[in-house]
C-alpha cells in the first residue's frame, strides 16, 4: 500500500518532465520513426493510390535488381570510392595542418589563420557550388588562366575522372580547417613536461613532434577514424548535387543523388526506397560497429 502510494506520488512529481519532453518525442515520432514504417514499400510494388497496406508484395526483387542493374552497381561503387577518398584525406590533411599550426608561437597569426580556414565550413554547398561552377567551367577563370599558360582546357565538371578529383579536393578545401579543431584541442592538452624531458634528452623539434605530439594524438585519430567509418556510404549529397550534370552521371552519381532522381524525379518510389534502405542498413551496422571500436580505443561515448 505504502509502495504504490509512493510510486504514484513519484510519478506525479515527475509528470512535468514527461510533459516537457513530449513535444520533442512527438516530433521525432512523426518525422523520424513513422517514416521507418514506410520502408516496407521497399518490399512492395508501391502505388500511392493503394497505400502501404494494399500495394502488391514483391519481396526482395528490388534488392536483386539493385545488385544486377549496371547503373545501381556503378552508383554503389562511386559512393564507396568518393567517400573513402574523402575520409582518408579528411583525416590526413587536418592532422598535418594542425601540426604545422601548432608550431606557430604568435597568437595573433594563429588566430588569423584559424579565422580564414574555418570559414568555408559554414558556407553551404549551394554557395560554394555556385562559385566553383563559375570558376571551373570552360568559360571560367581557371581555364582562362590555363589557356594563357598555353595548357589545354580541363573539364573539371564535365569529365568523369576530373569530376571525382574536383569533388574530393573541394571537399578537403571546405572541411580541413574545421576538422583541425579537435586535434588542436588534443594538442593543447599535452603535458608540457613531456616536451621539456624530450629536449633534455636532446630531441630536436622534429623528433618531439614524432615522439611526443603524434603519439598523444593517436587516441583522437582512432576515434575520428572509426566514427568516419559510419559515413562510408555518405559521399556528400549536397556537394555532388550542386556540382554534377548529366555528363558525369556515370562517374559522379552517388547513392543519395540516384535515390533522388529515380525516386522523386522518375517516381520509382519502391526501387528508390530499396536503395535507400540498403544504405541506411549498412550505415546502421557500421555506426554501431564504429561506436564499439571507438569506445574500446578511446573510451568515447555519446552519453
Amino acid at each position: 500500500m505504502m509502495e504504490t502510494k509512493k510510486g504514484r506520488s513519484k510519478m506525479i512529481r515527475q509528470l512535468p518532465l514527461h510533459l516537457l519532453i513530449l513535444p520533442s518525442i512527438i516530433g521525432l515520432f512523426l518525422f523520424n520513426y513513422y517514416p521507418m514504417a514506410g520502408l516496407v514499400m521497399a518490399f512492395e510494388d508501391f502505388k500511392p493510390r493503394l497505400g502501404y497496406l494494399h500495394s502488391p508484395w514483391v519481396g526482395l526483387s528490388h534488392f536483386e535488381y539493385m545488385f544486377t542493374y549496371p547503373d545501381s552497381v556503378q552508383v554503389i561503387w562511386n559512393t564507396l570510392l568518393i567517400a573513402s577518398l574523402k575520409i582518408a584525406a579528411n583525416i590526413a590533411v587536418p592532422i598535418v595542418f594542425a601540426l604545422l599550426l601548432n608550431e606557430v608561437r604568435a597568437l595573433f597569426f594563429k588566430r588569423f589563420v584559424q579565422t580564414l580556414v574555418y570559414l568555408p565550413h559554414f558556407l553551404s554547398w549551394v554557395i560554394l557550388g555556385g562559385i566553383l561552377t563559375d570558376m571551373l567551367g570552360n568559360k571560367g577563370i581557371v581555364n582562362h588562366l590555363l589557356f594563357n599558360l598555353g595548357a589545354d582546357p580541363v573539364f573539371f565538371l564535365g569529365n568523369g575522372t576530373w569530376f571525382r578529383i574536383t569533388v574530393v579536393v573541394s571537399d578537403i578545401w571546405k572541411e580541413f580547417g574545421f576538422s583541425t579543431i579537435i586535434y588542436l584541442a588534443a594538442m593543447s592538452g599535452i603535458n608540457m613536461s613531456l616536451y621539456e624531458a624530450a629536449e633534455m634528452d636532446g630531441a630536436s623539434r622534429f623528433k618531439q613532434t614524432f615522439h611526443v605530439t603524434l603519439p598523444a594524438l593517436v587516441p583522437v585519430i582512432l576515434v575520428v577514424g572509426t566514427l568516419a567509418l559510419g559515413n562510408i556510404l555518405n559521399a556528400g549529397f549536397d556537394q555532388i548535387f550542386n556540382l554534377y550534370n548529366p555528363l558525369v552521371y556515370r562517374e559522379g552519381d552517388i547513392i543519395d543523388t540516384f535515390v533522388y532522381r529515380i525516386g522523386l524525379m522518375n517516381g520509382s518510389f519502391s526501387f528508390a526506397t530499396a536503395v535507400g534502405l540498403f544504405k541506411s542498413a549498412v550505415g546502421l551496422v557500421l555506426i554501431v560497429l564504429a561506436y564499439r571500436l571507438a569506445y574500446r580505443f578511446g573510451n568515447y561515448r555519446i552519453f
Binding site: K10, Q14, L17, H18, I21, S24, I25, L28, L30, F31, N32, Y33, Y34, P35, M36, A37, G38, L39, M41, P48, D256, V259, Y260, G263, L264, F269, A272, T273, G276, L277, K279, S280, G283, L284, I287, V288, I302, F303
Partner: peptide, 28 residues
C-alpha cells in the same frame, strides 16, 4: 528520473537509422 534511459535511446536511435528520403517525403 525513471524515464531517462528510454528517452535517451529514443533520441539517439534516430542518429543511427532513418527512413530515408522517399518515406520521409511521403509522410510530409
Amino acid at each position: 528520473f525513471s524515464g531517462r534511459a528510454f528517452y535517451s535511446w529514443f533520441f539517439v536511435f534516430t542518429m543511427l537509422f532513418n527512413g530515408g528520403l522517399i518515406p520521409t517525403y511521403l509522410v510530409v
